[in-house]
Design a protein around this nucleic acid. Structure first.
Length: 477
RNA sequence: CGAGGCGUGGCUCAGCCCGGUAGAGCACCUGCUUUGGGAGCAGGGGGUCGCAGGUUCAAAUCCUGCCGCCUCGACCA
């Protein structure tokens, strides 16, 4: 591993790829656009899965698994859906040494196969709601790819629910969007704006799409999760009806919602600095790394005795701790290495510390160094980690606020986008053609229409007409 | 698909113009000395120069074709 990474200020994209590879989160696969998620990166994903899965279960969902191969004809059953996904599906035409009777598509998302199955499982209002989630991989043949942010194959979870009324479906759609908001903010320390997507950006086959949008450290926007109200579109396409309490047949109402390994990209770009990753304690594979320091075997003995005592104390307090006792690399090397990997807290313990019964503690996000008595250190760690978690959230929120602007005229809008970047809150008349023109002129798009609306959305930034909403404009990933 | 660029040890690249023993830094291995912010010295292993043809006494180097990758545009969690 060579020293350092490209500075964020010099080239943010290169900084990102450098960090991903040097922190050993991921590497490129041999097929264009594919990604190998390395153990350290996968451990972050496991922490994300663990947190989200708990929130899904707490809201009544259960996990299941549906096949990766879908008959090509399924995809064609919903008009918008096929139109949206056809260009990016991988199709299997040969298998078992023969050409297949019907080609199979590798799922780009699972609505079609799931609704095919739901038809078999739903017949009465008593079968509803049906609240299923799956953790899976999906494949979308994208033209331009970037590790974690957009890869040909990626890991995600997709929730697919079935309801008896449109109100229930809408309620579920919003509930899960809020689960995503809670997770993003409380686990990943990534502040997000919830809102509805414009017609042009909504999911292929949805009635309405809602999203959480976060700001990265280069002030661009990242769509970090989406929740869709699918109405009866898929129920109609797959003929899924239930008998209601009046003994009448009715099409089922659907939702789907998902987040992906893109979240890892989000956490990197929300908190990272020129020394590398900064991980929120709640999703960090290791929350504390201990680096023992010694010269000879006598020192090693006394230092390691304290290290093991401290380690077991931390574990008893529920802290994920790593002891880096590799004797082939120097302490200085390890400091840099674990900073690159974003471990929230580093503890140095050497002969001087054993003598004084103290340890050196350095917090990653601000580089603060303190000397603390060994006594009580382990017990205080959960609180310290909680403080770090809160501090990096606050810092990210302040960054977003500092880089969110209001524009009152088209000229002002253009100059903000070209000179400052960031989010712009501005009025929009809701016209897709206007949205497209703004995109052509500035590359900024409507990220979402925030739920949090002012009493008067003002005038449309482009046409000057009365605005329908105040929306978030930004350049995005 | 349109426009540029690049393929040489694991990585980053030099060498190519002007044909003649395949190199550097990092990484790796061994030994000794080191270890509180990316240790030092000594020794060592590792490359069909993307692939296939051609020119030549001789090709990493010149010519032709093919393949792959990267950057920028049209698609997107």
């Amino acid at each position: 591993m060579s020293k350092g990474v490209t500075k964020q200020r010099d080239d943010f994209s290169r900084w990102y790829t450098d960090v991903v590879q040097k922190a050993e989160l991921a590497d490129y696969g041999p097929v264009k656009g594919t990604m190998v998620i390395r153990p350290y990166g996968y451990a972050i994903w496991e922490a994300i899965q663990g947190g989200l899965d708990g929130l899904f279960k707490a809201t009544g969902h259960v996990n299941a698994y549906f096949p990766m191969f879908i008959p090509e004809s399924f995809l064609k059953k919903e008009a918008d859906h096929v139109e949206g996904f056809a260009p990016e599906v991988a199709v299997v035409t040969h298998a078992g040494g023969k050409e297949l009777e019907e080609p199979l598509v590798v799922r780009p998302t699972s609505e079609t196969i799931i609704w095919h199955m739901y038809k078999k499982w739903i017949s009465s209002y008593r079968d509803l709601p049906l609240l299923i989630n799956q953790w899976a991989n999906v494949v979308r043949w994208e033209m331009r790819t970037r590790l974690f942010l957009r890869t040909t194959e990626f890991l995600w979870q997709e929730g697919h629910t079935a309801h008896a009324t449109p109100e229930e479906a809408e309620e579920e759609t919003q509930r899960m969007l809020n689960v995503y908001k809670t997770f993003a903010e409380e686990w990943m320390a990534m502040p997000v704006i919830t809102g509805r997507k414009s017609e042009s950006e909504k999911f292929a086959g949805a009635v309405a799409t809602y999203s959480i949008e976060a700001m990265m450290r280069d002030t661009r926007a990242l769509q970090a999760g989406t929740s869709h109200n699918l109405g009866q579109n898929f129920a109609k396409a797959f003929d899924v009806t239930f008998q209601n309490q009046n003994n009448e047949p009715e099409f089922v109402y659907a939702t789907s919602w998902g987040v992906s390994t893109r979240l890892i990209g989000g956490v990197i770009m929300t908190h990272g600095d020129d020394k590398g990753l900064i991980l929120p304690p709640k999703v960090a594979p290791y929350q504390v790394v201990i680096i023992p320091i010694f010269r000879d075997s006598d020192q090693k003995k006394s230092v390691m005795a304290e290290v093991y005592k401290l380690t077991s104390g931390l574990r008893e307090n529920g802290v994920r701790v790593k002891v880096d006792d590799d004797e082939t690399s120097s302490p200085g090397f390890k400091f840099n290495e674990w900073e690159m990997r974003g471990v929230p807290v580093r503890i140095e313990l050497g002969p001087k510390d054993v003598e004084k019964q103290q340890a050196v503690l350095v917090t990653r996000y601000n580089g603060e160094k303190s000397f603390l008595p060994l006594k009580g250190l382990a017990a205080s760690m959960p609180d310290r980690l909680a403080n770090v978690q809160q501090a990096i959230f606050d810092r990210a929120l302040k960054f977003r606020e500092d880089n969110t602007h209001h524009a009152n005229s088209w000229e002002e809008f253009q100059s903000i986008i070209s000179e400052k970047g960031g989010f712009i809150r501005a009025g929009w008349n809701g016209d897709a053609a206007v949205e497209e023109k703004i995109k052509e002129a500035t590359k900024a798009t409507v990220r979402n229409i925030p739920f949090d609306q002012p009493d008067d959305p003002g005038k449309c930034i482009f046409t000057g007409e009365p605005a329908k909403y105040e929306v978030i404009f930004a350049k995005s990933y």
